[in-house]
Simulated assay, not measured.
Amino acid sequence: MSRSGYTCVRYIFCYINVLLWLSGCGILGVGIWLKTNHEGYASLVPQYSWMGADIVFIVIGAVTVLVTFFACCGSWFQSRCMLITYFSLVIFMFLMEFAMATLAFVYRERITELLKDELREGIEHHYSNTTDNGLSMIWTHTQQQFQCCGIDRPEDWYEIDAWPNQRIVPRSCCRPTEAQNPDCWKENNQDAWFLKGCSEQVLMWFVSQLHIVGIVGLVVSFIQLFGLISAMLLFCTVNHKRSNGHHYKAYPAT
């Protein structure tokens, strides 16, 4: 590779990873904020609290910061060790993404039922009607946003721990036209409720957003592919130049 081409690839690679590193710091910060201020998010799936939004953001942010650190330092200081570490990490991430996507597709029905069971567990035993916790906030927002009630049906809210022996629903199940009715959440006012379950509504919304998922997937794949090619080009060029006693900058060989 010519010196100008090498320098161009090196700087583009470095600057892109600086931006990704900053993004990773932001994602990590959001995860920490969710962990410290909205612990109820994990109650959505109590048996799998490690899958909560806070933990997911923290893991994604930490991995992004770590991987891009090796990329930035490897390209800027022309470190072969850091470049090959970055290359290996990206390969590992790609294989993990492929494996997770494959498993999610193969076991999609089982995963759906498992999530429904866990969501139902969260409603029955972790939902609180008296405290403004993360779980109640999520359900309130979800039911109002998607105009739904419960997981599969409004009856999912009947006789939960928050209101034992009562066949009622949260006020967020009430239609907007019935919001002024102080008793809209009671059993004798079922006509005032959203009748569709949230699992169906959220699934329909997700299907309608598949084009966005596809675009995000393509962008992530392009960044990973660019990173792999760039890292290998930089590694091979640095290795070749140093084997011949040449350095583009006076950095010690590593």
Rank of each mutant, 00 (worst) to 15 (best):
F77W: 07
Q78E: 15
S79Y: 05
S79F: 00
S79Q: 09
C81F: 07
I84T: 11
I84K: 14
Y86P: 10
Y86H: 12
Y86D: 05
L89H: 00
L89P: 01
F92Q: 09
M93V: 09
F94H: 04
L95F: 14
M96H: 06
E97L: 04
M100N: 05
M100Y: 11
A101E: 04
L103R: 08
L103G: 10
A104C: 09
A104G: 08
V106I: 15
V106D: 03
E109C: 05
R110W: 02
I111T: 05
T112K: 15
L114A: 12
D117K: 15
L119H: 12
R120F: 14
I123R: 09
I123S: 02
I123V: 01
H125W: 05
T130A: 01
G134Y: 01
G134D: 00
S136F: 07
M137Y: 06
I138A: 05
W139Y: 03
T140S: 05
T140W: 04
H141M: 09
T142E: 08
Q145R: 03
Q147N: 13
C149W: 00
G150Q: 06
G150V: 14
I151N: 05
R153F: 10
P154R: 06
E155W: 03
D156L: 14
Y158W: 15
I160S: 02
D161T: 11
A162G: 06
P164I: 10
N165I: 08
R167K: 14
